[in-house]
């Protein structure tokens, strides 16, 4: 009888104590595993000069206003580069959460560019596990300078075109640290063959380190592989600070390149880092939701 009483007592106690926890445990055990996708790997659609894996949300329109001042090495006469600036005005629209289309015009070489980017694999954990996010990026650009009457030779439309294909591969290692690799091919229809090739192969590296909830440090470097000795250009490198305020992202940038299309910054960067040819620049983006989801 003693044993029985003890058993009853124990059962009552254990039921009372463990009921709630058991319910929680039972619930969690029965959950279908979720797939947890990495988000906000980078803040802007651009990291410094080049593209990031990020696409706009569906129905979101982003206005991108970018500036590159002259080289700081111009000294006080050029107000450390602030006297001259190249501008790119651009728009990017999210057709779906993973597919974006954009276009813009850069005053550098008076270039117009259009592009598509498609995020086809997303970094995730849980039910689906994948270590990286991969976005394919393709662009075409037309350089409208010089005008036909100003050109040194009979310049045709095809001579003005350049294309870029990129795979953007990024991993968000932690909420504060992300890295990206960018195998790149830039094709220019017409080049001066004595110093350049039509196809330029490059590999880009970029990183982002969040230092507070709204501020992150970024860096980016594009290394070109098939560059001859006569090639007068340099590899593009830059560092920046992302500052986020509501619908805006301000990116304050220090870089040796001034063009904002892939042709210009990957294959035709003019700033020599050893000469201190760094320029100040900024990218400002403003996002608008033009179409309500669902």
């Amino acid at each position: 009888m003693m044993i029985l009483r003890r058993t009853v007592l124990l059962m009552l106690i254990s039921t009372a104590v463990f009921a709630q926890d058991d319910l929680m445990k039972e619930m969690l055990d029965n959950e279908t595993p979720q797939t947890n996708y990495a988000s906000s790997t980078f803040k802007g659609s651009r990291i410094i000069n080049g593209q990031s894996i990020e696409t706009r949300g569906k129905g979101e329109l982003e206005f991108i206003f970018a500036h590159r001042f002259g080289p700081v090495s111009g000294g006080s006469y050029e107000l450390f580069g602030l006297d001259q600036a190249y501008v790119r005005l651009g728009l990017e629209y999210g057709i779906t959460d993973n597919l974006g289309v954009g276009f813009g015009r850069n005053s550098f070489d008076k270039t117009m560019d259009g592009y598509l980017r498609y995020k086809f694999i997303r970094q995730s954990t849980g039910a689906i596990n994948f270590p990286v996010t991969i976005t394919a990026f393709g662009s075409g650009a037309i350089r409208t300078s010089p005008r036909a009457q100003d050109a040194a030779y009979d310049i045709q439309l095809v001579d003005r075109l350049a294309y870029t294909a990129q795979l953007l591969i990024a991993r968000k290692f932690s909420p504060t640290f992300s890295m990206q690799l960018m195998p790149t091919l830039v094709h220019k229809n017409t080049v001066d063959k004595t110093v350049e090739t039509n196809d330029v192969y490059a590999l880009g590296f970029a990183g982002r380190l969040r230092v507070s909830r709204s501020i992150a440090l970024t860096s980016e470097y594009y290394h070109r592989f098939n560059v001859g000795n006569a090639n007068p250009y340099y590899n593009a490198v830059g560092v920046g600070i992302d500052i986020e305020t509501g619908g805006h992202v301000f990116q304050l940038i220090f870089t040796n390149t001034r063009g904002l299309t892939e042709r210009a910054f990957i294959t035709e960067t003019q700033g020599d880092v050893r000469n201190g040819d760094f320029s100040l620049g900024f990218n400002v983006t403003r996002a608008f939701q033009v179409k309500k989801p669902k």
Binding site: A19, Q20, L23, M24, M27, L28, E31, Q34, N36, Y37, S39, R56, G57, K58, G59, E60, G94, D97, G247, A287, Q289, K292, P293, K294
Partner: peptide
């Protein structure tokens, strides 16, 4: 017993704006 437990996946909150 009156016991209740629930869990909500935070990432699945749907907003009007992606941002």
């Amino acid at each position: 017993a009156g016991d209740i437990a629930f869990s909500i996946v935070i990432k699945d909150f749907a907003f009007k704006k992606a941002l």
